[in-house]
């Protein structure tokens, strides 16, 4: 039973260089800033950083970890904030904010030491 106002159990991701690289490659994203630290620094970044496809995937994981395998994810809308560099800890928090029939909206934030990395909403359908 999901209720509006319910908070999701937080999820902390240890963003190791391996995590950055393996998720970039698993999403078929071969841009150098996601796997080559020297080039990332040359391009003005502090380190390699997470790609957007992984952000979307992590937001999905955060919500489905809590909601279980039976729910259907209808929509993931994210706003991108500060980068998430290697060696950060990325912590997701979320709360159920809307309910409409079988559908619920969960608002989600993924934060690291620099601030909000990703914020947004996920719409799910509960069978």
């Amino acid at each position: 039973m999901i209720t509006v106002g319910e908070e999701l159990p937080p999820l902390s991701i240890d963003v190791t260089p391996t995590f950055v690289v393996s998720t970039a490659l698993a999403t078929r994203d071969f841009q150098d800033v996601h796997h080559d630290r020297d080039l990332a620094v040359q391009r003005g970044s502090k380190d390699i950083f997470l790609n957007i496809l992984t952000d979307t995937g992590l937001v999905q994981r955060f919500v489905t970890d809590w909601a279980g395998p039976a729910v259907r994810v209808k929509k993931i809308a994210i706003r991108l904030g500060v980068p998430c560099y290697a060696y950060e800890t990325l912590t997701f928090t979320g709360q159920v904010t809307e309910h409409d029939g079988n559908e619920y909206v969960v608002s989600v934030a993924g934060r690291n030491s620099l601030g909000d990395h990703v914020t947004g909403t996920v719409r799910i359908e509960v069978p």
Partner: peptide, 22 residues
């Protein structure tokens, strides 16, 4: 799933929706 640390059992017959772009 392995890279993202996602242990969900939901994807035996269908792919994770967030992979659409992949």
């Amino acid at each position: 799933l392995e890279a993202l640390g996602d242990a969900s059992s939901a994807y035996a017959e269908e792919a994770p929706p967030a992979m659409a772009q992949v």
